[in-house]
């Protein structure tokens, strides 16, 4: 058992253009130049099974820190399944298991001493449909994650609520009605509330599973703007079936498709500009340009 608390073995040099030395006061301080920019995910030879069925096959992918990585591909290609293996949410499905290695800043997240409960505080998640807790107020929705760890000090909670709601660009709309139920908000506001809730526990990585698919165009735009705001402070992985969205919000894009025996696999991953203008693979080209069959 390697229980010793240690820094990651392979310290990643911060790419200079990412390390913003000065952050606005309502922003989370970006990493200082001497610190490690954390939140890099490296996936090697990942296979996901549901019982006998292999849903995802042999995926190797590096997700850079403090950037947005989009995952696109036809439905059923395993992109949501893949996303869920990054914070072990797939373990909720009975019979689901993974083979391969997923590291977060060099730590294998499937190591026996990694607690999935702790992992999910570092790797947060936003879901397809807004899912605020209906019996809780806006304030309580945002603080739900903090209260789990017994942090009840009012001033501290107040501060986190304001900071999280400002980061999720919702503060101005709800600051006067924090005691109202979270479900009283519009769909788009609810989704930003869920993003605020995910931010409140101070994660490094945020996984987004088609976060705008249940929203109308103007609410979708707000969420996309929000992603752009958050991209320098968090590692964001977004699954989307909307290629335009992927091209608008992401720095990198990974294209998945379904292969033999309905197992999803990664075709290629590259800078978003390159994927949408000059992909290396014919399959990607076909998908981007709408050819199939």
């Amino acid at each position: 058992m390697e229980t010793a608390v240690r820094r990651p073995d392979e310290a990643i040099e911060a790419p200079p253009e990412r390390a913003t030395p000065l952050a606005p006061p309502d922003r989370r301080p970006a990493a200082s130049p001497l610190d490690i920019v954390s939140g890099e995910i490296v996936v090697e030879d990942l296979n996901v099974y549901y019982g006998e069925f292999r849903a995802v096959r042999d995926v190797s992918l590096t997700i850079p820190p403090r950037a947005v990585t989009a995952i696109i591909g036809p439905s059923g290609c395993g992109k949501s399944t893949f996303l869920r293996t990054l914070n072990r949410m797939h373990e909720l499905t009975p019979g689901a298991r993974v083979e391969g290695v997923v590291t977060l800043d060099g730590i294998d997240i499937y190591r026996p001493d990694v607690d999935p409960v702790q992992l999910r505080r570092v790797v947060g998640m936003v879901f397809q449909r807004p899912n605020p807790f209906p019996t809780m107020s806006i304030y309580d929705n945002v603080t739900a994650g903090l209260r789990l760890t017994g942090r009840h000090k009012r001033s501290e909670l107040d501060e986190v609520v304001e900071r999280s709601l400002r980061r999720s660009a919702l503060w101005d709309e709800v600051k006067d009605k924090l005691r109202q139920p979270g479900t009283s908000l519009s769909g788009g506001q609810q989704q930003r509330l869920c993003i605020a809730r995910a931010l409140s526990v101070d994660p490094e990585v945020i996984l987004m599973d088609e976060p705008a698919s249940a929203l109308d165009p103007s609410a979708t735009l707000r969420v996309e703007e929000l992603i752009a705001e958050l991209r320098r402070q968090y590692t964001i992985v977004i699954v989307t079936h909307n290629m335009q969205q992927a091209s608008r919000v992401s720095d990198r894009t990974a294209f998945f498709t379904m292969g033999e025996e309905r197992a999803g696999y990664l075709v290629e991953a590259d800078d978003t500009v390159r994927i949408f203008t000059n992909p290396a693979e014919q399959l990607t080209e076909d998908y981007i340009s709408g050819r199939f069959g």
Binding site: N131, R197, V201
Partner: peptide
């Protein structure tokens, strides 16, 4: 109770019981 509620809480780093 819809699963989305369970997932929302687990994704915040809750234990099963929480």
């Amino acid at each position: 109770v819809p699963d989305s509620q369970r997932e929302a809480m687990l994704a915040l780093g809750a234990t099963r019981w929480e």
